[in-house]
Design a protein around this nucleic acid. Sequence first.
RNA 1: UCCGCGAUAGCUCAAUGGUAGAGCAUUCGGCUGUUAACCGAAGGGUUGUAGGUUCGAGUCCUACUCGCGGAGCCA
Length: 432
Amino acid sequence: MLSHVYIKDLSKHVGESVTLKGWLFNKRSSGKVKFLILRDGTGYLQCIVFKGNVSEEVFALADSVSQEASFEITGKVKEEPRAVGGFELDATDLKLIGDSVEYPITPKEHGIEFLIDNRHLWIRSKKQVAILKIRHRIVKAIRDFYDERGFTLFDPPIITPNAAEGTSTLFEMDYFDLGKAYLTQSGQLYAEAGAMALGKVYTFGPTFRAEKSKTRRHLTEFWMVEPEMAFYDLDDDMDLAEEFIEYIVQTVVKDCRPELEVLERDISKLEKIVRPFPRISYTEAVEVLKSKGREFTWGDDFGAPDETVISEDYDKPVMIHRYPSAVKAFYMKRDPENPEVALAVDVIAPEGYGEIIGGSQREDNLDFLLERIKEHNLPQKYFEWYLDLRRFGSVPHAGFGLGLERTVTWICGIDHLRETIPFPRMIYRNTP
RNA sequence: UCCGCGAUAGCUCAAUGGUAGAGCAUUCGGCUGUUAACCGAAGGGUUGUAGGUUCGAGUCCUACUCGCGGAGCCA
């Protein structure tokens, strides 16, 4: 039995004397009474130290204990509507565990550069704790969603010999006598092999892009979940993506209300994220852009501002499908009814949060796939194993990738991706 | 890579070309119910770096460094 209790469990201990352990979040005092706000990772608790109730040493310690010092405190739990969290501790004893001298992050405002430099401490603050808890809940929701639907987790390699799509810039490394190797930018090709073995699989892990992107929507290292399903076509793929997003958002709404409130998220906007989502073709989206007076040529890919304009008509994610095949990856299947377009889909989150999903039905015909590889000037020898998937029992199949950090950013309603991962990796920053 | 913005106390920011200031943090004092508590006092600065204009530069000019967010690319 643990010798101390956690703040989240205090409701079971009202009237009892208990010991808690944690860090000093903030302190206020009024002469002979000290208010110590304890945080322990499960919540916040106001502890009262009255001069008359404790020894002189304890009162002196309550006076001198500084922000983020760790301590152990004992006292009686009582319900107190005036206090954060609804409970309060009437302290009888206090022990310092670890001192904290001039903690750099004060209760006032700070600039982003300073906060990122102190990311290892910044994650102790209220909003960051809320974001990281929501991220955790989303990760669990993702795994639950696929596990409950007969998918098998399938871990692809992180070190790969080639560029999966031949487009992005990758992180390069020397791989012993085998020459250059690269950090993965997607587990998808491997997931396709998994789908042929296990039917329905998903990959979930870190992904790396060496693009020199400097925006609030990009990290060089981020997490992506990629389901891949045998015998699914594009419509099945979109059905799954829609159900998936609804499940994640509604799980967070149900289980993370306190965290969403800390973040001042407009929860009513999340409650609207229920099926069905609007589905429009690329060609229809181009018409929308033109009707709003934007210059756009059929055949170009959408930029982030275009996506925002298209999505602003909806309060749900919008699914844009059938993009010009020229702007999409080599493995995407062309629409048999119109070879100019690929059976691809992007899902654009509402409120201007941009693309959170990119997916497609895959090319399952060996000859067409060989043509695409030639057109994209990709080295066929690296794809022989991938082509084997079409040589030995090829089936229609589809999948998509969902960016974890973009999803967390949207659901939390925050304005930058870097706050959604404990230690963000960006083009000009790889510390702490 | 391109475009724009910025760098002054530990932090967030002020300061017509004329003695560098405030709030928070820190230290000291006051207050028995505080909610980013409050009140009083103190310490704290080579104004990113290098050069230039000027009687005088935080302020104007040039170069550089670093940071920020936007484009492109994408999750």
